[in-house]
Design a binder for these strands. Structure first.
Length: 784
DNA sequence: CGTGCTCACCTTTTT
DNA sequence: GGTGAGCACG
């Protein structure tokens, strides 16, 4: 299929009024206000360029201005630019910001998107070259795992010992490295189920091809196969892409690197922007090496360092720089700022996790109030960045109790919910009758009396005859092999499918979705469903139908959801943001709390165990990312005792605490417990004890006492903070719904006794009887 | 075929 | 401690 010579409007969102209103002719003024390095990065158009953009140095501005500049100089048309990002959010932001500079011309940037969305487009055009049809489906990880599970079952592999998840992880890893089954290195090929890894990988790919489907890794991998086996196709793209721009280059995996190198190979006009110090995705295949090697990969390249930071005060910047300097594997940058010193980074040791959340909550309340020498902050100016999500709970509990508004960023996503996946399975099956995974998913959802036995029988026929499951179902419905009831059920289902397929030609896809949900009995089943989540699910489905409206047709909608696994949410409320360090990348906040800096928690024990020094360096980069999120204040804390999986454990301060430059750090001592613990000095050669700037230092037995007392089971941290009896359990109730029911009497430390009036998923609604007033808040209950 | 119980798990997450 | 998965049971 030839490439169109004009922008493909179907693939780009329609311009919004607000963007058009902002549109103005491109003038040289877009270069104004850039510092010399930024300007160089914008103007060095030809040849390979690596822009090392430190945290807060105006990276996005450089990227967008550079694109605008290329267009303004007439060196390329919008559709001749390839601009890749990792996330949809980044792509969206880039498009918006370019539109702000150049106006509606930005619509023509049809090759601006994520690696995966661009690879998917390329694959649609050339699917036949890898044995797929251009309407192939993209499987989500749920489908992928079910497919692998079937495969393992068919191969008589013990799925207890060799889990589908494990193999899915391996295959993903292999694809990230750009290895097809044939190219698998021997050491890798012999992995899994006594050396059957390679064979299973091959079988899996075979199954995908039969299903006319591919997984996320395939999008890139198939591109590589096409490019390397069909020079003419590659040449076509060489001709097309005059300039290539890559964001977050430090996060590229091998497959993405090879993909870029192939595309850049003829013109060499590739500009990669990234920061080796912010590479935090090694565990999902990112290779810091790619950025470290750039100059060797692209001879004659220009390297530009953006080192002027516009975000943080100098103490914060210096603390972060001092910490990251411990890493060996880096290209090296010296960030600087013209901002004044500001406040030092505060480091504190506290008693336990509860005390830590109490302290942080108090400080947030203080910050919110403001004082004579400090402006009052809004809640949304504050972020709590944790290493792992299990650390979030303590803060949520505290905030609910104190009624501090908060949002947790991350967590389960809209399109990953079961009901949404079910709905999509219906749509997929309507669109492509041979989507067996979709068929299996919903053939008995809602329950229509087609049980596991029938499905297995059906799949057997399908496999024996090499036909899709729906064809096999049609045959089976004609024979008398099934009980009359089952046969009728199956026939009805097939007839419904046919009808929907016919309707799909005529009616709008949101209407189709409604029709399917109604006629299949899905909504009815949910309405009758008395489990607490049913209501939410119905609402989710309504939201789904609504969100479909903004797409042209069913096909583009399905393509969108498989590549963009999230929904655009409304504007953020004024709330404290709780998130992991990983999801904080790219964000900034005036006040940042960094709790849980303890050995084993951060750096994560597992990282260090599995990846050794490399893992440790990545953890340190994570710490660097954390500190550099702060504009004005950064507060690090660690505890003496922490509950991990219900067990009390003694903690030592993170080695990262010791690596912070003393001059930029202030050790606060509100709680009386600070500094390292026994053995600390021997372990990491701490400097804190010498400086004695850190409370009473290591010579103090305070830390040891704190830990020992904990084992005796009596320490102040466990006492309730507010008056009242009972125990605070959790923000979310246990998932075992039998543990709670409507009518249960529960106790809240602030609001007193209440009654469970709603159970929704793992969240409880409690109505409190205090003061005659009914107050509904989420959870906080006492069990039993 | 639907439910209740025991058990093993427990970092980060995008597409 | 909390959770989902898988299995045994009715």
């Amino acid at each position: 299929m030839p490439l169109p010579d004009s922008p493909d409007h179907a693939a780009t969102p329609a311009p919004r009024i607000s963007d058009l209103a902002r549109a103005r002719p491109p003038g040289p003024d877009y270069l104004e206000g850039l510092n010399p390095e930024q300007r160089q990065a914008v103007e060095a158009i030809d040849g390979p360029v690596l822009v090392l953009a430190g945290a807060g140095t105006g990276k996005t501005r450089v990227l967008t201005t550079r694109l605008a500049h290329i267009l303004a100089t007439g060196k390329a048309k919008p559709w001749e630019l390839l601009a890749v990002t990792f996330t949809n959010k980044a792509a969206r932001e880039m498009r918006e910001r370019i539109t702000a500079i150049i106006g509606p011309t930005a619509e023509g940037l049809r090759w601006l998107g994520t690696f995966h969305s661009i690879a998917a487009q390329i694959l649609r055009r050339h699917a036949d070259l890898v044995g797929l049809k251009s309407n192939y489906t993209i499987l989500d990880d749920d489908d992928q795992e079910r497919l692998i599970k079937q495969l393992l079952a068919a191969e008589n592999i013990d799925v207890k010992r060799w889990t589908p998840k494990h193999l899915a992880g391996l295959i993903d890893h292999w694809k990230n490295r750009g290895w097809t089954p044939d190219r698998l290195p021997p050491a890798e090929a012999s992995q899994f189920a006594n050396g059957r890894g390679q064979a299973l990988y091959r079988l899996y790919q075979e199954r995908l091809r039969i299903l006319n489907a591919c997984d996320f890794g395939d999008l890139l991998l198939h591109n590589l196969t096409i490019f390397t086996s069909q020079p003419d196709v590659l040449a076509e793209f060489h001709n097309r892409f005059r300039y290539i721009l890559v964001d977050e280059y430090q996060d590229t995996n091998v497959a993405q690197y090879l993909w870029l190198r192939l595309l850049a190979q003829s013109r060499q006009n590739i500009c990669c922007v990234g920061d080796d110090d912010q590479s935090i995705y090694g565990w999902r295949g990112a290779e810091v090496d790619n950025i470290l090697r750039f100059e060797r990969d692209f001879p004659g390249s220009t390297v530009i360092r953006l080192e002027r930071n516009y975000r943080s005060t100098s103490h914060i910047l210096a603390a972060a720089s001092g910490l990251i300097a411990t890493n060996k594997d880096r290209l090296g940058k010296t960030l600087w700022t013209e901002a004044d010193g500001g406040e030092k980074v505060v480091v504190r040791g506290v008693w336990d996790g509860e005390a830590e959340s109490r302290l942080i909550a108090e400080e947030i309340e203080r910050a919110k109030r403001g004082s004579t020498d400090r402006p009052a902050r809004r809640y949304r100016d504050v972020a709590i960045l944790v290493r792992a999500s299990f650390q979030m709970r303590a803060f949520e509990e505290r905030f609910v109790m104190l009624q501090i508004p908060y949002t947790v960023i991350g967590g389960p996503r809209f399109f990953e919910r079961a009901e949404i996946r079910d709905a999509h399975a219906y749509l997929r099956l309507i669109q492509s009758p041979d989507d067996d995974l979709a068929f299996e998913r919903i053939v008995n959802v809602p329950k229509r009396g087609i049980g596991e036995t029938t499905v297995q029988k059906l799949l057997q026929i399908a496999r024996a005859q090499q036909v899709p499951a729906s064809i096999a179902a049609r045959q089976l419905a004609l024979t008398d092999e099934l009980a009359a009831r089952t046969r009728t059920a199956l026939a009805t289902f097939l007839r419904d499918l046919d009808r929907w397929r016919a309707e799909a030609e005529r009616i709008a896809h949101p209407r189709l979705m409604e029709m399917v949900l109604e006629e299949s009995g899905y909504t009815d089943a949910l309405k009758l469903d008395r489990t607490p989540t049913a209501q939410t699910r119905l609402e989710n489905l309504k939201e789904l139908v609504q969100s479909m409206g903004s797409f042209e047709d069913l096909g583009s909608y399905l393509e969108h959801v498989s590549l963009v696994m999230d929904l655009d949410r409304g504007p953020a409320a004024d709330a404290v943001q709780i998130m992991t360090l990983h999801s904080a990348k790219g964000l900034e906040f005036p006040l940042v709390f960094l709790p849980g800096w303890e050995e084993g928690v951060f750096p994560s024990q597992r990282s260090v165990d599995e990846k050794g020094e490399k893992g440790l360096e990545e953890e340190r980069r994570l710490a660097y990312v954390g500190i550099t999120r702060a504009r004005e204040e950064a507060r690090i804390s660690f505890v003496a005792n922490r509950q991990v999986y219900g067990r009390w454990t003694s903690q030592l301060p993170s080695r990262f605490v010791d690596e912070l430059p003393l001059a930029n750090v202030e050790a606060a001592s509100e709680t009386g417990y600070y500094g390292g613990g026994p053995g600390m000095q021997q372990q990491h050669g701490s400097r804190w004890d010498e400086s004695s700037s850190f409370g009473d230092g290591y010579s103090s037995p305070g830390w040891r006492r704190a830990q020992e007392r904990n084992y005796r089971g009596s320490h102040p941290g466990r006492q309730p903070v507010l008056e009242g009896e009972g125990r605070l359990v959790a923000v979310s109730a246990p998932s075992h719904s039998s543990d709670y029911a409507r009518g249960d009497r529960v106790f809240h430390q602030k609001f007193g006794y209440g009654e469970v009036t709603g159970v929704e998923g793992n969240k409880l609604t409690v109505t409190f009887e205090k003061a005659g007033e009914k107050r509904v808040i989420d959870s906080f209950v006492e069990r039993g």
